[in-house]
């Protein structure tokens, strides 16, 4: 199975990279870019008996390894057979 997980900094955590990107967008003349947050996208190929088991595995993986719950939230975006 192939899955996609995204990890984003929590809303209340300062994201200096996102801020820098937003400023750079302004410098390129795109004043309309009001906010940018930078996160990570993981593309995972895995073996799992079924979708439910895959979800459980991905939740655990995302919580324990892919993200740090003190500063980040995660989302399992998709699971495809």
């Amino acid at each position: 199975m192939k899955a996609v997980v995204t990890v984003m900094p929590k809303q209340e955590v300062l994201d200096p990279q996102g801020k820098a990107i937003q400023r750079a967008a302004g410098a390129l003349g795109h004043a309309g870019v009001q906010d940018v947050r930078q996160g990570k996208r993981f593309e995972i190929t895995l073996d799992a008996a079924d979708r439910e088991k895959a979800e459980a595995l991905l939740d655990e993986l995302a919580e324990k390894l892919l993200s740090n719950p003190v500063i980040e939230d995660f989302q399992v975006e998709s699971i495809e057979a």
Binding site: P16, V70, I71
Partner: peptide, 17 residues
Amino acid sequence: LCEAGLLPGALLRNRDL
């Protein structure tokens, strides 16, 4: 130690990157 939960908080990217 922060990642392992032995200490509180987390370390983020420096303010000026």
